[in-house]
């Protein structure tokens, strides 16, 4: 979460709770709602590394709040992040390990493994279709995230099909 928070702070200074709200608003239902403790821990680490700094802002009737802002070093880290390509997804290696190793040890049948996995992926797909229907149409980032997850899942299913054909 470090760089997402840093990116938000490079736009304008904010306190922890504002950052939590911003993340929820931008990414919507498709994003696990970040917990506030996690956000403060991450901000603390960013500050220790010199990427953000904080100032205490006085408030009437309330304890001071800590407002964070992005430093020049932080800006540099952010540039480095956006300018580098992101790692691609990996094959679901745990399932693949089962597929290769289970029959060697005689504890499972490969057809059965693949069939069970397919049904499980389809159930996840059903959840994603539901999630998309429940998500506000105007929240484009949330819909793109869900659609991305669907495309990955479709690829996983196609790959299961390939594994199954290979058993013929």
């Amino acid at each position: 979460m470090r760089l997402q928070l840093l990116a938000l702070l490079s736009k304008e200074p904010a306190h922890g709770y504002e950052l939590k709200q911003a993340l929820e608003q931008i990414f919507g239902t498709a994003y696990p709602s970040p917990n506030i403790g996690q956000i403060y821990v991450t901000l603390g680490r960013l500050e220790k590394d010199g990427l953000v700094r904080s100032v205490d802002v006085e408030q009437s009737n309330r304890p001071n709040k800590k407002v964070y802002y992005c430093t020049a070093e932080g800006r540099e880290a952010l540039d480095e992040w956006v300018d580098s390509a992101t790692e691609g997804p990996r094959v679901r290696d745990e399932f693949f390990m089962k597929l290769v190793l289970a029959p060697m040890t005689g504890i499972a049948d490969r057809m059965t493994l693949i069939n069970r996995q397919r049904r499980h992926y389809l159930a996840i797909m059903r959840d994603l279709v539901e999630l998309a229907q429940q998500t506000d149409q105007d929240n484009r980032p949330a819909h793109l995230l869900i659609e991305g997850a669907m495309l990955h899942l479709q690829a996983d299913l196609d790959w299961l099909e390939r594994c199954q054909e290979d058993l013929l």
């Binding site: 239902t29 696990p32 709602s33 049904r119 994603l128 429940q134 013929l168």
Partner: peptide
């Protein structure tokens, strides 16, 4: 597969239903 039925069954619901909230769509890393 190859002209025969190799699997036939219901799609069971996943254990974790999306409750109008976070699905497992993205993974948060610390």
């Amino acid at each position: 597969l190859d002209g025969q039925i190799i699997d036939d069954g219901a799609i069971a619901p996943t254990r974790r239903r999306p409750k109008g909230g976070a699905g497992d769509v993205v993974e948060l890393r610390g």
